[in-house]
Write a protein that binds this DNA or RNA. Structure first.
Ligand SMILES: [Zn+2]
Ligand SMILES: [Zn+2]
Ligand SMILES: [Zn+2]
Ligand SMILES: [Zn+2]
Lengths: 155, 155
DNA sequence: GTTTATTTGTTATATTGTAACATCTGGTAT
DNA sequence: ATACCAGATGTTACAATATAACAAATAAAC
């Protein structure tokens, strides 16, 4: 699944956006948090917490689960990453501060995740919740299957 | 959130439907599996695996995590229950064999879950996945918030 | 009745996530 | 400057969720 032409650009953009938002919101974008965000942006596949811990421990021998989960909490709270609930894993957000919620396409084969935020889905969900008189706080939409590239590959 | 007028009826219907499907499909609806399904249908709130284990151990002193997870696997595979991924919990399916996927409304306050399967949402998702040339295997849609009853209560 | 497949029992362990308290660090007020 | 404070990180311990592997029991098929 070709997600990007130049993944170095994905990473640097994500880092810059996060840096800018942290400056604006007077948040501390510490080295640890930067390292975590960069590691999560290693690719477009979701990263697992204990995998991130292992990578982190290469640089930072004293890293512990709490180290990782606290950084993840920070990154989640500020919208720099998302938690993929069906995988218990974490993925970078392509456009933090643009919206709270993301819809995901998750390729079971190449593991890559892409966002598929779409206003038609949003309005269909809104209509349903309104009909049910339900007040939405948070929506999780995770669509698993095969991306185009992978489905061609297996044919 | 009033989900049902007579929850005894929810339970007995769910048990009968499961029983019928098992007969049709030549599946073994053992006592353990019946107990598990009944426990999951204790209410309309999701049940956690280790909570079910505790309840199970009252009757079956030798029950272990594997006991529970194997039964859950059976019930999931055959569509009698769903896993709520955002909660790591399990909820009974109101209409097994009608569809593979369910959309859920999850009240953070009273914890009750209702299904909100809706063809408009389905077609909006289908349009998006088609546009992305993505081949869907499984869709997770979990909408958290407050049900009407609970949101009135807190006003 | 013996074989076979499925289910359940049992033990052990892997994976994911938090709680609680100590220490450090960088900014604020006196 | 220095005492203070808040936020971040270190550290230890543990809770919660889930699976692997193999043995024993049970039910189905022959
Ligand atoms: Zn990229
Ligand atoms: Zn793929
Ligand atoms: Zn009911
Ligand atoms: Zn409610």
């Amino acid at each position: 699944m070709i997600q990007c032409e130049d993944h170095g650009l994905c990473i640097s953009t994500a880092m810059e956006v996060a840096d800018r938002i942290c400056t604006e919101k007077r948040l501390k974008f510490t080295d640890l948090r930067k390292d975590m965000l960069r590691m999560i942006w290693d690719g477009h596949a979701p990263q697992k917490a204990y995998g991130l811990l292992s990578k982190l421990q290469v640089k930072n021998h004293s890293a512990k689960p709490a180290t990782v989960y606290r950084s993840l909490d920070f990154l989640l709270e500020n919208g720099f990453i998302h938690k993929v609930k069906s995988l218990n894993a974490f993925v970078g957000c392509s456009h933090p501060s643009k919206h709270d919620e993301c819809y995901f396409l998750i390729c079971d084969s190449c593991k890559e995740i892409s966002e598929c935020c779409d206003s038609n889905i949003t309005s269909a969900i809104k209509a349903t919740t309104k009909r049910n008189q339900f007040f939405v706080k948070n929506t999780t939409l995770e669509i698993a299957g095969h991306c185009n590239a992978c489905s061609k590959r297996t044919e």
